[in-house]
Computed example of a mutant assay.
Amino acid sequence: MASTDAQKAARAEDALMAGAAPDVAAVAKAWLARLAHERRLSPKTREAYARDLLVFLGLLAGHIGAPPDMAALGALHPRDVRAVIAARRAEVIEPRTQMRFLAAARSFARHMEREGLGKVGALTAVKAPRIAKTLPRPVSVDDARALGNADTRAGENREPWVLARDAAVISLLYGSGLRISEALGLHRRDMPEPGRGDQIIVHGKGNKTRMVPVLPGVLALIDDYARACPYELEPDRALFRGAKGGPLSPRIVQLAVERMRGSLGLPDSATPHALRHSFATHLLARGGDLRSIQELLGHASLATTQIYAAVDSAALMAAWKSAHPRAR
């Protein structure tokens, strides 16, 4: 999977190099290299940055009538940036997608300034439209368990080892709060045998590592899958395999959850990533402290983890409104 992400990042970089003015392309190449080596951003994140900067440059070219070179970027006025934002808003509906390209452009501008190549003050002079914060939507404890139960899909025409694999992955997402990329990035050697350890080292965003616990029941499910898997699970290769033996695609896990949503009557918000939200919310509801949950999730900032306190408070308020006799 890592090589695939690297290939996608390389293609996005090539598209950026081809679509930008020559002097901008040279600076952008150095900027992407800095993101990789100094900030240690993953190939997937670098791919997003490259694509978003290409979007910004393309919209700006449409506004000024030509692909912008370094001089044109330095001469931008706030009204030019506002025109680009308006053009982007006309293309997409999702607010976060609307503004993501602006973050890439600002990162590129900071790189220009650090290298003494000029300033693009117009990018900082214009405030991005405020985006309403949406709270994560976790699934219930019972629904999380059902999603990780192979019997939930017993009627499907799937090979038993595939059902065992999906149950193991989904249970790992909920049981340890992993991102799907982290779970599918595990090698066979990363997972202890049942009874021989209960922790794993996970490689998260920015190639940062953290240690997370794995429940005995989840280790048992992974062992069941490993025994049933028709492919040899070499220590230094992906633990979770696709139907043809290659690394398992995140899309396969997403489709498995989508199928179970229908049978369990769950909303569209019940996704593999929602299981990570559920892990954090359920820990907090049972007395877990935010700092520990931050470390388990691998959040760089405690502020990111604090959204789960809001989720828990919202659940408490909903229970109060529905149950308290004076709340009606």
Rank of each mutant, 00 (worst) to 15 (best):
A183P: 00
R188Q: 13
R189W: 08
P192T: 06
G197A: 08
D198F: 11
I200G: 02
V202K: 02
H203N: 15
G204I: 11
G206C: 07
G206T: 08
N207I: 01
T209L: 15
P213E: 10
L215C: 04
P216N: 04
L219Q: 06
A220W: 03
D223G: 01
R227V: 13
L233E: 11
E234L: 14
E234Q: 14
P235L: 10
P235K: 02
D236F: 06
R237P: 00
A238K: 00
R241F: 05
G242H: 04
G245R: 12
G245S: 12
P247N: 12
S249H: 13
P250M: 10
P250Q: 12
V253R: 10
L255K: 14
V257K: 00
E258S: 14
M260D: 15
G262W: 11
L264Q: 03
G265F: 05
L266Y: 06
P272F: 09
L275E: 04
R276D: 10
H277F: 12
S278Y: 06
L283D: 12
L283Q: 08
L284R: 00
Q294D: 09
L297N: 06
L297A: 07
Q306I: 01
I307C: 08
A309N: 04
A310H: 15
D312Q: 14
S313C: 07
A314H: 11
A314P: 07
